[in-house]
Design a protein around this nucleic acid. Structure first.
Lengths: 214, 214
DNA sequence: ATCTGTGAAGCACTTCACAGCG
DNA sequence: CGCTGTGAAGTGCTTCACAGAT
């Protein structure tokens, strides 16, 4: 069955909410309650889950632990994922420092750059390697995901190189439209675009006066 | 007229591509070419633009400069936008350091934290202030946008406080579902969720063998 | 000849509403 | 009685296809 991409995008959201409930030792949750927490309609949640099976009990709701396990399995979150970072400028360093990936099973195991000043440098237990060695390094020790944190001008080349090395998913921080062949996943992280669409909605509201508002 | 939100989300993308073309002194571009660069169908681009007016010339295409100006006006990018950052941990510092906001007219003019060790610290020309003074500081000198880079546990409280201070748009880096009242814009930056949905598609492909691939 | 602007058709996603199970 | 699972209805977005402008 072909599952709508938006559904796949919501599953991690559900998984995260369930993790939180599990940490609080909640045993059961209804689509109603989950929906209120996540700002998603209960019908949406039930429909989304129904693409994958029947995980609930009528009259009761969903067993938190069981549903979380199912979602992890469905999303492939029951494995460790190896990632390579390309670009260790300011942004790249912040990504290496970020404590949010590892607890979810995403480990950065290689870091690359083009700048001779950075190559060889030790950051967060990794030695920065030359991008020219990307192919050699990754063919000996493949990774699943590439994280791109290079200037826009070279982002497409880096992405092409990563894909040649067998990377199947790319998390792209470079602010530019890039293309990947079919079958390769890519998601962009674009704070500026996010801001630029929000301004559309707030541009006419007028900044609140310096005095007002409680 | 009510414009589909997805349309608004694409406009900044068009604007960015046009900026690039303008920098290369391109005068005219067709929906066809723009679409190829951005991986959007030409019909989509024409339809999107048609919500706002008639900007093209039949048989020729769009004047790059003129269309870019129109998009800037439509999106409210012809102004400067004042932003306040809350949370100056590792992530917050990286955001303060980020060179991508200012050139697009987005300036971080205040930084707040709860940690006494950080309050008073000078980072990137800003003095970190106490979150308890948020209300006082922002009522004297309002900002348009709040950037939230605090731990998940306090993100909702911070968001509520920002909205009380007249902030109308929020860029949220905290990994948690939060709610905003109607009329307030919020976009989330969630690299982990992005990874967790991509794994669904690649989980069965099998990691390439250590030797293979050219 | 080329490329826009746009109704109409088509497709994808969401919500409804209720049968059926616990 | 409460809540799931799900066809069917409804909504919103995308693509088609072509009239019309240059």
């Amino acid at each position: 069955m072909e599952i709508p991409p938006v559904v796949i995008d919501r599953l991690p959201l559900y998984a995260r909410a369930l993790s939180m409930l599990e940490a609080r030792e909640r045993e059961v949750v209804s689509s109603q309650e989950l929906g209120t927490r996540l700002d998603v309609t209960p019908a949406q949640i039930r429909k989304d889950l129904s693409y994958f099976g029947r995980f609930g009990k009528q009259g009761r709701g969903y067993n938190v632990r069981k549903l979380l396990d199912e979602l992890h399995r469905i999303l492939g979150l029951d494995k460790q994922w190896r990632m390579a970072l390309v670009g260790v400028g300011k942004l790249g360093r912040a990504i290496l420092d970020y404590q949010g990936f590892a607890p979810q099973g995403f480990r950065i195991v290689e870091a690359f750059d083009t700048d001779p000043k950075r190559i060889g440098e030790q950051i967060s237990n990794l030695t920065v390697k030359n991008v020219e060695d990307l192919q050699r390094v990754l063919s000996q020790n493949p990774v699943d995901v590439g994280i791109v944190a290079v200037p826009a001008e070279i982002a497409q080349d880096i992405i092409d190189a990563l894909i040649k090395c067998g990377v199947r998913a790319i998390l792209n921080y470079a602010p530019i439209a890039t293309r990947v062949p079919p079958g390769i996943q890519m998601k962009r992280i674009e704070p500026v675009l996010a801001l630029q669409s929000m301004t559309y909605y707030i541009k006419n509201a007028g900044r609140p006066a310096a005095s007002a508002r409680s």
